[in-house]
Amino acid sequence: MAADRRSSWLKGVLDLLVLSRLTDGESYGYEIAKALAEAGLGEIKGGTLYPVLNRLEEAGLVEAEFRAAERGPGRRYYRLTTQGRTHLATESRDWLRFHRAVETTLHPGGNTP
């Protein structure tokens, strides 16, 4: 039950989390998943991550460039577009407002258990 709920929360905000991993520069799928796991968001499988990256690319929020590697398979690198940066700023504000409303409702008066 707890895992299901966490999964639902993540589903609603995963696109923003992926965009946020690109604010400091380009990155690729595995590196993004690893960074999110290290931030405590749990393991994001490739089957979840790549469709999100595809949708972000289709929406023009990220740009992708495939680069062949000297050794081993090549990778697709993603970077934030100007539209993506604006989208991330706006949506992050909305998310934080929502988060504050939830927090206030769960802990009226600022008392946390």
């Binding site: 799928g29 998943a33 469709p51 595809n54 495939f66 398979p73």
Partner: peptide, 28 residues
């Protein structure tokens, strides 16, 4: 090639990492 690179780093199997091929292809 990108997905093969992902597996090489994660050390997981394709089905475990990306799920059933039909569903993954439909999403991609």
């Amino acid at each position: 090639e990108d997905l093969r690179a992902h597996l090489a780093e994660s050390g997981t199997g394709p089905e475990e990492e990306f799920g059933p091929v039909a569903a993954f292809a439909a999403q991609l």
